[in-house]
Structure formats: structure tokens, C-alpha cells
């Protein structure tokens, strides 16, 4: 049995196509590094200023001047380039990044995303998330289906301050993969062994589920 996070990451890796430029948010999304097939020629963009970063082998000596946006020491993949942070965000605002993967505190059925601030509790600053969320064509949210207390994170309407409105394309949790459509959230895949009723019970958002079409992951 894969862990919840392994299930999310393995499903998320299926969203990456050969030749794409992708950005991996801090935390869980950055672990996608280890789920990508090596021969796909995918370039990983990191907003501090590199296109083409790759993980260092565990025994490698780090180069102190090479990190990704999460602060991990990285290497440069073949064909990589480095640049200043203004240029890095030009790449983002001009939609040259194909897919971005991000975590979420809350996400809703309109595709609104909240992942940067909990008023009164957590406000370290938004970093690069707002521009990535607003400008990258495909935003895939990777998060647990419920918070630590079991409350739903997939909502009818976000309550926390938004990172960006109507920006999410796909939500992948350990329970389901859900596409944001004009009509609402459409369930594409449900985790192996999970009943549709159980999925609905764990979710606040309205879910469109066609059981004859739904896949398992």
C-alpha cells in the first residue's frame, strides 16, 4: 500500500508530459522530482532563477550557490539556464511555464486557491505563489483531502485570503483526482478501495461523479 503522499505524487506525475516546463511548489510538490521518468526531457523551473534544476544524489557535495526555491541544494540538468529573479517571473507571467504544482490550505469548486495566509496565525508572505497561480495555464493542487482535524479542504467556497481566483485546473488528494470545470468539480479518479459515499462525506464541495467513467489510482 502506498502512503497517502506517495499515492498523490504517483498520480501527479501522470500530469507531466514530455518536453514540458514545470514548476514545483515548496513541500510535497518538490518531491515530484523523484517521480519523473528521466527520459522525458522535462525542464524544472524554480522561481529564484533557474530553468532545468534536478535533485543532487545523496552523496554529492553541494554547490552553495545552487538551490531551488525551497532551499534544497540542486544540480543543473542538461540544457539548464540561470537568470535573475525578474526574468524568472517574466517566464511565469508570459506563461512559458506549462504546469505548476502547489499545496493548498483550501481550494474550492470554482478553482479558487488559498495557500499563503491564515489571518492571525500564519503570514510569512506570499513568495512566488500569487504569480504562478495567476499566470501558469495549468495549476495542479496537491494536498491532503482533509486537514489534521479531519475538516474538509475541498470547499464550496474558500474562506481564507485567496492566492488567486479561478486558477486551479486539477486537484489531486489521497482520495481523488478532481478537475475544475465550468460546471464544478468533476471527479476523474478515486483512490483504490474508497467508496463514492466515503469520498462525498469527506468533501464539502459538490462533486460530479459519473461512476462508469471514474478511474482508480
Amino acid at each position: 500500500m502506498p502512503s497517502d503522499q506517495e499515492r498523490i505524487l504517483a498520480r501527479a506525475a501522470r500530469e507531466i508530459l514530455p518536453g514540458q516546463i514545470i514548476n514545483l511548489g515548496i513541500g510535497l510538490p518538490q518531491r515530484l522530482f523523484h517521480y519523473m521518468p528521466e527520459d522525458q526531457q522535462v525542464l524544472v523551473h524554480s522561481e529564484n532563477g533557474i530553468l532545468g534544476c534536478q535533485p543532487l544524489p545523496d552523496d554529492a557535495t553541494p554547490d552553495y550557490e545552487m538551490i531551488d526555491s525551497g532551499g534544497a541544494y540542486i544540480g543543473a540538468s542538461p540544457g539548464a539556464s540561470v537568470f535573475d529573479s525578474a526574468l524568472s517571473f517574466a517566464m511565469i507571467r508570459r506563461s512559458r511555464v506549462d504546469v505548476t504544482f502547489m499545496g493548498a490550505f483550501e481550494v474550492d469548486q470554482q478553482g479558487n486557491l488559498a495557500n499563503w495566509k491564515i489571518p492571525g496565525k500564519f503570514s510569512p508572505g506570499i513568495g512566488g505563489a500569487m504569480e504562478l497561480a495567476q499566470k501558469v495555464d495549468k495549476l495542479v493542487v496537491l494536498c491532503s483531502h482533509n486537514d489534521k482535524r479531519g475538516n474538509p479542504k475541498i470547499l464550496q467556497q474558500c474562506r481564507l485570503p485567496l492566492t488567486a481566483p479561478n486558477c486551479v485546473s486539477l486537484i489531486i488528494t489521497e482520495k481523488a483526482a478532481m478537475e475544475v470545470t465550468d460546471q464544478g468539480l468533476k471527479v476523474i479518479d478515486i483512490a483504490e478501495g474508497l467508496a463514492v459515499d466515503e469520498l462525498r462525506a469527506a468533501t464539502e464541495a459538490d462533486l460530479m461523479i459519473d461512476e462508469s467513467q471514474v478511474g482508480r489510482f
Binding site: E47, A86, S88, F89, I92, G125
Partner: peptide, 13 residues
């Protein structure tokens, strides 16, 4: 005072 990262970079640029 906090700004989104790309806006901060561009304001400086």
C-alpha cells in the same frame, strides 16, 4: 512590507 516575489523583483528592476 511584503510583495509577491515577482512584483518585488520588478519594482526593483
Amino acid at each position: 512590507e511584503m510583495y509577491p516575489q515577482g512584483l518585488l523583483a520588478e519594482k526593483i528592476r
